[in-house]
Simulated scan of single mutants.
Amino acid sequence: MADDQVKGPASYFPSIEKKYGRPIADWQDLVRRSMPAKHMELVAMLKHDHGMGHGHANAIVAHVLAEDRT
């Protein structure tokens, strides 16, 4: 049986959408528009400018940076 459970940073996405009321695509676009910047600078931007918690901000940034590396 295949394990279809989402793992890694994307596992946070449903709770991020629920808590902050915006689709993940919006957050990903926001991060991409703020690049180039270092990982923690992007995390800080989401935390300070948008009130996001550290874990949620880190998950979005990590996912965007991983996607953009491929």
Score class of each variant (00 low, 15 high):
D29H: 06
K38D: 07
A57G: 01
I60V: 12
M1N: 15
M45E: 09
K7I: 09
G21N: 07
R69C: 11
V64A: 00
G8Y: 04
G51P: 01
K19T: 11
P36S: 01
G51T: 04
Y12I: 14
S15P: 13
I60P: 01
P9E: 12
I16W: 04
Q28M: 09
D68C: 08
D68H: 15
Q5P: 14
G55A: 07
A37I: 04
A59H: 00
Q28S: 06
V31R: 00
D68K: 09
G51A: 02
S34K: 02
A2M: 07
R69P: 06
K38F: 05
A62W: 03
G8P: 02
H56N: 06
K47G: 12
A66W: 07
H48Y: 14
K18D: 13
H48C: 08
A25W: 08
L30D: 01
H39Q: 08
T70G: 10
S34I: 03
L46Y: 03
G21W: 03
D49T: 08
T70F: 11
A10C: 14
Y12S: 08
L65S: 03
L30T: 01
S34G: 07
D68R: 04
S34T: 03
D3I: 05
I16R: 00
H56D: 07
R32H: 04
K38E: 07
D4N: 12
K19I: 12
D3T: 09
V61K: 00
A37K: 03
